[in-house]
Amino acid sequence: MRRPWGAGLAVAALLVLTVMDLAQHYDVPVAAVLALAIARALSLSLSWLRPRAAVAVSLVTTAVMAALTTPVSPSEPWPWGTTSAFGHSLVIAIAGARGLGRRELVGWWVATQALGVVALGLAPDRGSWPGLITMTVLSGVAVVVGDLLRSRAETNRRLVEQETISKAERAERERLQERARIARELHDVVAHHLSVVVVRADSAPHRLPDVPDAVREEFTGIANEARASLTEMRRVLRLLREPVEQPETGPQPGLDQVAELVESTRRAGADVRLVSDVPTGLDPAVELTAYRVVQEGLSNAVRHALHAPVEVAVRRTAGELEVIVQNEKPPRPVVPAPGSGHGLTGMRERVALVDGTVSTGPTPEGGYLVRAFIPVAEEVESADHGLGG
Rank of each mutant, 00 (worst) to 15 (best):
P4L: 14
G8L: 13
V16G: 11
L34E: 04
S43D: 00
A54S: 00
V55D: 02
V57N: 03
T61K: 01
A63F: 01
V64G: 02
M65Y: 02
W80Q: 04
T82K: 04
T82V: 11
S84C: 08
S89M: 06
A93S: 09
I94Y: 03
A97L: 03
L100K: 06
E104S: 09
A111R: 01
Q113V: 04
A114D: 02
V117K: 05
L120W: 05
I133E: 07
M135C: 05
S139K: 03
S139N: 08
V143Y: 03
V143H: 01
V144R: 07
R150N: 11
S151Y: 01
E154R: 14
R157T: 12
V160R: 15
Q162H: 13
E163A: 15
E169L: 13
A171P: 01
E172Q: 07
I182Y: 08
H187V: 05
V189P: 06
V199Q: 11
H206E: 13
R207F: 09
R207W: 10
P209L: 07
P212T: 13
D213Y: 03
R216C: 08
A223R: 10
A226M: 07
R227C: 03
A228Q: 15
M233V: 04
R234G: 09
V236T: 12
R238K: 10
L240Y: 04
L240V: 07
V244Q: 14
Q246T: 12
T249N: 13
Q257K: 10
E260G: 14
L261V: 09
E263Y: 08
E263C: 01
S264R: 05
A285I: 09
V293C: 09
V294F: 05
L298M: 07
S299D: 14
N300I: 06
A301R: 00
R303S: 10
P309W: 05
A318E: 15
I324C: 12
Q326R: 12
N327K: 05
E328N: 14
P331L: 13
P331W: 10
V334W: 09
V335A: 15
M347E: 04
V354Q: 08
G356S: 11
T357I: 12
T363Q: 09
P364F: 03
E365R: 12
L369Y: 02
R371F: 06
R371V: 09
I374G: 01
A383L: 03
G386E: 06
L387R: 00
G389Y: 10
